[in-house]
Design a protein around this nucleic acid. Sequence first.
DNA 1: CGTTTGGTTTCACTATTTGAAACTTAGTCT
DNA 2: AGACTAAGTTTCAAATAGTGAAACCAAACG
Lengths: 261, 261
Amino acid sequence: MGAEGHADGTVGKALDVLDMVASHGRPVRFSDLLTQSAYPKATLYRLLQTLTHQGMLTLDPDTGTYALGVRLVRLAHAAWAQSSLAPIARPYLDELARETGETIHLAQMDLGQVLYVDKRNAARPVEMFAQAGKVGPAYCTGVGKAMLAYLPPDALEAALARQSFHRHTPHTLASREALLAELQAIRKRGHAWDAEEHEAGIICCAVPILSRQGRVMGALSVTSTTARTTLDALGAQAPMIKDIAAKIAAEAESWRFPEQV
Amino acid sequence: MGAEGHADGTVGKALDVLDMVASHGRPVRFSDLLTQSAYPKATLYRLLQTLTHQGMLTLDPDTGTYALGVRLVRLAHAAWAQSSLAPIARPYLDELARETGETIHLAQMDLGQVLYVDKRNAARPVEMFAQAGKVGPAYCTGVGKAMLAYLPPDALEAALARQSFHRHTPHTLASREALLAELQAIRKRGHAWDAEEHEAGIICCAVPILSRQGRVMGALSVTSTTARTTLDALGAQAPMIKDIAAKIAAEAESWRFPEQV
DNA sequence: CGTTTGGTTTCACTATTTGAAACTTAGTCT
DNA sequence: AGACTAAGTTTCAAATAGTGAAACCAAACG
């Protein structure tokens, strides 16, 4: 993860450091960060100090370790609440979960990766915070492919450049070419499959959420297992999922243009 | 909200702008931010540009409005997962919710405000993301007072300086003096009440979560209504709540010192 | 079609950031 | 103990990055 692309300015560097702290699962010491950071000692030190002072990081005085601060959680709450899709989609996800009895995912695109912004789980009622905010690969998940398929060429290129193409299962489309062919098929079909491409036994049907102008706003999927159903049976529900995606898109758009004065 | 205290350096200013965007509930236009920002046009413009480029904000090309970006949601997921308290406390909150059948809150301190990091709701199973990340006042909530009571003098002073002391109900302790007296009583008693101080009819019993060295890590509360129970009845559960708080603290601490190597 | 409003760019000026190196602690080893 | 080492903090001149008044551009307005 080392050298983040192009860190513009001090702010970029600071955020880079934030990511670095986030990428370790646990509180990190100064020296740990130093070894992997390319920044010279003093620079890194001051960045950490600033971020800590700003509440984005916390420094445990006992252990001398840095962890992500609470200010982030507060900001993220706002981010989630105003990312238009998530709060609007909420009741629709409930409905879809009730109708299908399966697991529902709502995702958005984040730098070539899939970011899950909400979820309904068939079995356990709902999970928390911990669930939303997770990231996953784009090239081998239903929601990922559904979004990729409708991205404009330049954005698609940028996203493709960031795919790792790891062969998770025998069904994974682990090359750029195979994926591009599949994306075309998705555009034709109108929805994406996940045919055990990410995890064995897990299948899903996903549709993109598109704005009126055709911009990709996110994706919505219904997930199940091969033990419980088949791709064809899931596909039968595609029209309904598409319908709900359209409703979410419509509502999100009208919300974006509030009656301003 | 205007002039944020002391924004050190460029990073401080950038984060200040982030907060500004967050504080509006909806996407904002450049000029809206400009009017309330004190920063000159060009400066604000560049800050927004940087933040957008970094994925902390998104600029809707159609409407020309800025909203919080998805990178925040991803960061916050990590923040939540590594803020040691929340993930560790999870099973204990479940237990407490089951035992008491009441609403449970887990909170931490954030710049003089209470930040709820997790929650169990008696009636509806669990709510999402939207719930965690909320902030509330410290001087008139159970968790807030429980934490204030055990803060070291300088931190307490800093927190007090940020209280607004608004009289939400007739029972609100709306002065510094009244609050200080109550904090002393809390230290003596070992747990805090909320005797309808924030909302009429809502009462709660809260205990701090303290590290071995006595540092305030957070607070835990059981909330109910006057219609359903009384403060005394809630107080009877204080020992159990305290016990759970201690368990959470112990586990969080041992997690903080992982067997390194 | 001139004017206003909202957004973007310029450019000389300056303040902030930079990072090698010196300096403190706080451990560790003999 | 005293000498060594590792981890964190501070300094300071040089350089870079940020600043902001003002000019500019482009739509929308009247």
